[in-house]
């Protein structure tokens, strides 16, 4: 029952100095390794005029230079320059794995919040009905839609279609997808989650991880039991013991630490952060100084890994 009051700290652009007064030289190589350029609104991206401007750029009327209109990283494809904003809503692509929350049940469809500019739709026809057999959706199904998903439910789905107005339609026509249970929900900026071969991971610490590309992450207890068709839409949690709860909390806090320091989030990074976090009790991971220790350890390890790969 102690209260910890802190003063705000200024941001510093100097190299990190450790307890012995040694300056961290790795940071310089780190900068060379990741050749990303971060720009702020109004900053000049390039003086050259041969480039085409994409999203997040504009031409200064006075100087004719190409400036950034958002804070983000410079993205160049041949001659097209665009800025990928750091803080943004999710813009989906077909086949993306997303996690969403049902906000509305209407006729033949659900509205799903997926951290996008508009709510996505999940049609009754794009879900698997219990029973397994492919069949036409009847009026009876339409009347009991809340039995499948009701307001507030979390689900993992795939983007089926994108529309002109920027909205999406989702589907969950696979046993991989469906309602989420037995765990806890974390939100990170969508820019941090990278597209990978798989977004379902089982970490060695007995925790299942679902990384939604929209920045919604589900951390849950690892279950060996196969999904039974009938239980897809169940809301019942399994028994989760003390140890599992701690592991889940630790993974969640590691993810928040990474996102706070704006480091990309994938299973490898989360595992590194998790290992680094083992020196601290779970609730200490919410402390800002502990977060910094963990993330700096992760970035050090990443650089070592990269250097090893190059050799």
């Amino acid at each position: 029952m102690t209260f910890q009051f802190l003063s705000p700290k200024p941001s510093s652009y100097t190299n990190k100095v450790d307890a012995d007064g040694d300056i961290d030289m790795l940071l310089k190589t780190e900068r060379e390794n990741f050749e990303t350029k971060v720009v702020t609104p109004g900053e000049t991206i390039t003086h050259a005029t041969q480039y085409m401007g994409g999203h997040g750029t504009y031409i200064s009327p006075e100087t004719n230079q190409r400036l950034s209109s958002v804070a983000g990283v410079v993205d160049r494809v041949n001659k097209l320059i665009s800025i990928r904003p750091l803080h943004t809503r999710y813009t989906g692509e077909i086949g993306d794995l997303v996690i969403g929350r049902i906000t509305e049940v209407s006729q033949k469809r659900w509205k799903v919040d997926i951290n996008s500019r508009q709510d996505a739709v999940l049609l009754l026809s794009s879900i698997n009905l219990p029973g397994g057999v492919q069949r036409r959706k009847t009026e009876a199904d339409e009347l009991q839609m809340r039995k499948f998903f009701s307001e507030g439910d979390l689900l993992v789905a795939e983007v089926r279609e994108t529309f002109q107005d920027g909205s999406f339609s989702l589907h969950i026509r696979s046993l991989k997808y469906g309602k989420l249970r037995n765990g806890s929900f974390v939100i990170v900026p969508p820019a941090l989650v990278q597209r990978c071969k798989t977004h379902f991971h089982t970490l060695p610490c007995g925790v299942n991880l679902t990384l939604g590309l929209n920045g919604y992450i589900w951390v849950s207890k690892h279950t060996t039991q196969t999904v039974e068709e009938l239980a897809i839409y169940s809301n019942e949690n399994e028994e989760i013991d003390q140890e599992n709860r701690e592991a889940i909390a630790r993974v969640c806090n590691s993810i928040s630490a990474l996102s706070r320091h704006f480091m990309c989030i994938n299973d490898k990074m989360i595992m590194l952060a998790y290992e680094a976090s083992l020196n601290f009790p779970v609730k200490d991971l919410l402390k800002l100084d502990v977060m910094e220790v963990i993330t700096s350890e992760v970035s050090e390890k990443m650089i070592l890994l990269k250097a090893g790969m190059r050799r």
Binding site: M1, N182, N235, E236, C252
Partner: peptide
């Protein structure tokens, strides 16, 4: 909004003194 399973997870976590972010009840 909150889903029933999240609700249950938090409820049982509070009961066993490990909240979703690892804190105890009075932290």
């Amino acid at each position: 909004l909150i889903s029933p399973s999240e609700n249950d997870y938090i409820l049982r976590g509070v009961d066993s003194n490990i909240r979703a972010d690892g804190r105890g009840r009075l932290d």
